[in-house]
Design a binder for these strands. Structure first.
Length: 478
RNA sequence: GGCCUCAUGGUCAAGCGGUUAAGACGUCGCCCUCUCACGGCGAAAACAGGGGUUCGAGUCCCCUUGGGGCUACCA
């Protein structure tokens, strides 16, 4: 049988990383088995509907490299893929479930249900309407009395199943409530729509968060009542913000888009979240989507919550950045270099090259290169460096030589500058650092720079380099 | 409160009865080096606690503690 998994988010906001990981595992599992990955939008709660949220889901999955085989914008043989467009289907099946004894009409008012609240503040329905006669129900229906359809859960017995990651799960039916399947507005609740859709769409493996672990017996009751085959359940541990708080979209934590706009690469994000709750047999960390598909396995999925560690995400992102060739990095970093005040003034390719090994996320770019524009009077004590055996006196003698050497160059490229400066050191019997340190300080007026004297001169260009060295010489002679 | 569930360094995690308890991030140190990075090498750092079972327990069982989830006309 062909494996079919689905990702079924509700369009309530942005794509958060927890959902993203669920989608990823669904995708990996399906693709590994040559199966289909389906996207279904669960929008039965009209109050939570957020404009544009569906588009965010589409684009996030696309950017994350999770191409679904069927979905609202893709079509497929099991549509529609948006629950609000399937309204009639649910009501029809709900009625069938009533026929089969798995559910019943309930005409109780909210007030009456509220009055059933127990000492812990929990409402537990008392199956009052289960005992209505056929005539009473018919009469209420004809009178148009508002109703909901409730699941009829046995008063005794135990519901159990084998979860693919958590193992045997058993819940006493008396712990479960006769939950509402069809709301008074005629729309189904998640509990019902989910079961009906998963079955109708031929979902073989249900992959979702642990919040459904203990309510799954309720769903199994429905599968059984309908005479449908139960899917394989694969529940996933949550991703936490810290030891006690889940990453949640409510607080706007960890939205995929936010990370992308901060300069994280989608592949790095996806790669990282794959590792939260799963480890491949060979302990690989940096993996392509294809490698993840090949390595994915359910026995590598962990049962305990994983804390989201943005420090490690940054590291991984840095690894991706470093692995890019210079041209690719040059292109992808463009929007971030543009945010710097140095943009357009120097060779972007040279700058990008320096940046590549020095940043982990691209939003660090502007602050890293703004220094190029911050030149002016500086503390000449910066010329002092013990290990290099250089100080202001050394600078006074070296800088003019550097000036002349650079001034003599026709071609001001990396190699030429490098050779000129180093041969200067050899000729005059200086240590490399005795030339390069003062030169770099003179060129940048900074004690730390991303790159050395040669790179700095190269980026600044001949004219500006000479100007700055001259400026430093004057400063020293003041 | 009841029920479900989880528990290895600061973090992610290997481990699935016998190991010097991996690896990665981070931290620290050293090397490389014109500074900062990169890269290389190395170090510190963990089986929540208590009972069992067993010749032997991080691995199995129970309890305690702690965490998460469910307990909605949300999903």
């Amino acid at each position: 049988m062909k494996v079919r998994t689905r990702f079924a988010p509700s369009p309530t906001g942005f794509m958060h990383l927890g959902g993203m990981r669920t989608a990823l595992y669904c995708y990996l599992f399906a693709k590994q088995h040559g199966g289909d990955f389906i996207l279904r939008i669960e929008d039965t709660d009209q109050e939570r509907y957020v404009e544009g949220a569906v588009e965010v889901i589409y684009s996030s999955l696309k950017e994350g490299g999770m191409d679904y085989d069927e979905g609202p914008d893709k079509g497929g043989d099991y549509g529609p893929y948006v629950q609000s467009e399937r309204k009639e289907i649910y009501l029809k099946y709900a009625k069938e479930l009533v026929e089969r004894g798995g559910a019943y009409y309930c005409f109780c008012t909210k007030e009456r249900v509220e009055s059933l609240r127990d000492e812990n503040g929990n409402v537990r329905y008392d199956k009052h309407c289960l005992h209505l006669t056929k005539e009473e129900i018919q009469k209420n229906l004809e009178l148009g009395v508002p109703y909901v359809i409730r699941q009829n859960i046995p008063e005794h017995g135990v519901g159990s199943y084998e979860d693919a990651v958590y193992g045997h799960i058993a819940v006493d039916y008396n712990e479960l409530e006769d939950g509402i399947l069809i709301k008074s507005d005629g729309l189904p609740t998640y509990n019902f729509a989910n079961v009906v859709d998963d079955h109708l769409m031929g979902i073989t493996h249900v992959i979702r968060g642990t919040e459904y672990l203990s309510s799954t017996p309720k769903y199994n009751l429905m599968y059984d009542a309908f005479g449908w085959e139960r899917p394989v359940y694969i529940h996933l541990p949550p991703i936490m913000k810290d030891a006690t708080r889940k990453l949640s979209k409510r607080y706007g934590d960890a939205n995929f888009d936010d990370f992308v706009s901060k300069g994280y690469l989608p592949e790095a994000i996806v790669n990282y979240i794959a590792l939260l709750g799963w480890a491949p047999k060979d302990n690989s960390e940096k993996m392509t989507m294809q490698e993840m598909i090949e390595k994915f396995s359910l026995d590598g999925v962990s049962k305990s919550p994983a804390i989201f560690d943005d420090v490690k995400l940054r590291w991984l992102n840095g690894e991706y950045l470093k692995a890019m060739d210079d041209e690719a990095f040059y292109r992808i970093s463009e929007p971030f270099r543009k945010q710097s005040k140095t943009y357009g003034k120097y060779d972007g390719r040279l700058i990008a090259k320096l940046l590549k090994t020095r940043i982990e996320i691209m939003s660090e770019i502007p602050e890293k290169i703004d220094f190029l524009e911050e030149y002016g009077e500086f503390d000449v004590n910066m010329f002092y460096h013990k290990k290099m055996k250089t100080d202001t006196e050394m600078a006074k003698t070296v800088l003019p030589l550097v000036y002349d050497a650079l001034n003599a160059l026709d071609s001001f490229d990396h190699q030429s500058i490098h050779d000129a400066l180093l041969s200067l050191a050899t000729e005059k019997q200086f240590k490399n650092g005795q030339i390069l340190w003062p030169a770099r300080v003179a060129l940048t007026a900074k004690d730390v720079t991303p790159g050395g004297a040669v790179e700095m001169a190269e980026i600044l260009g001949k004219e500006e380099s000479l100007r700055r060295i001259k400026f430093s010489m004057d400063l020293l002679n003041k």
